[in-house]
Design a protein around this nucleic acid. Structure first.
Lengths: 158, 158
DNA sequence: GACAAATAAGAGATAATATATATTTATTTT
DNA sequence: AAAATAAATATATATTATCTCTTATTTGTC
């Protein structure tokens, strides 16, 4: 959503990859070449990426790849919490919470389709407690919502 | 989610249809036969219904029907707010807010997949105001979240 | 009521998204 | 280096959704 610190993109990718490596080591699972490539591609993109776009981009890089392989890698990354699926877009984004294990909300701009992950423990807690009153037990990282991001609300596109 | 008043299902369907008629009249749009059938089918179901299940059910009733027609009807009903799409299930549910124009949250049980629409203006307002602080402007009826419903949290299936 | 305009539905094809299964290959452990 | 485990490939197919063009229906308007 373009309001991150203007740190170099490549640096951010490298940092996120290092975090992913560490997480996989900790969980004793393998960040294989394909999984790393998928994650890198997602991290390098400015917007949610579709499975078949991943397929195409990575195939372009000389890999021989099928949809199933891409989906398996995505599932792995999602399971680990490194990637989120945006159901309403059928697209995927890297997690930006740095694995602090904070439940987050996914905010999707209904104009520009960009995604912002909201870490707001206080808000989350108040939502969770309200749901508990209703007898409902909220899952972590399961909230997808739409609205206008700052830029679009201010009419950037108009 | 099976905790509604034990009013007769058919009565509820009839009531909802009457409300839909009224809404269409007010908006000067047409609740055609197909649209009414689609809505009736959704209202009559205990759980979110998939587009191709609608297709099959309605075809069973002697209609000649294609996917496009079903999707067109769904789009119409969604546009009017009479139906919600559950993106994470690729399925559709009738709106249960009786068109009081109250923004609601969609709660999906991650065990039984049933859907509960939560009308809680206070909670919604507090979320909206928190988002405003972040420069984000929440859309109405755009929130999809998952968790365990009362029954599943209590281990009904165990 | 007859007609033109607007709206909706039907037909048929196809696109986009995702999964299943069996087999092969690669990696880790022993 | 063999066995065990995990991952990837190949191939087929399932599921979800849209496009284009034609036909039917409804809604004013005369």
């Amino acid at each position: 959503m373009q309001d991150e610190p203007k740190e170099d993109r490549q640096e951010l990718v490298a940092k996120a990859l290092a975090e992913a490596e560490a997480l996989c080591a900790e969980k004793k699972v393998r960040l294989t070449r394909l999984r790393r490539l998928v994650l890198t591609t997602l991290l390098s993109s400015d917007c949610p990426t579709k499975a078949y776009d991943l397929l195409e981009q990575l195939s372009g890089e000389g890999l021989r790849l099928t949809p199933a392989s891409v989906y398996r890698s995505l599932d792995f990354l999602i399971e680990l919490g490194l990637v989120h699926k945006i159901s309403s877009l059928n697209a995927y984004v890297p997690c930006t919470c740095h694995h602090k294990n904070i439940a987050s909300l996914i905010f999707i701009c209904s104009d520009c389709q960009q995604v912002k992950e909201i870490n707001d423990p206080e808000l989350y807690a108040s939502m969770r407690s309200r749901f508990n009153e209703l007898g409902l037990d909220l899952d972590d990282n399961s909230i997808e919502m739409r609205g206008k991001c700052k830029r679009c609300a201010n009419g950037v596109h108009k």
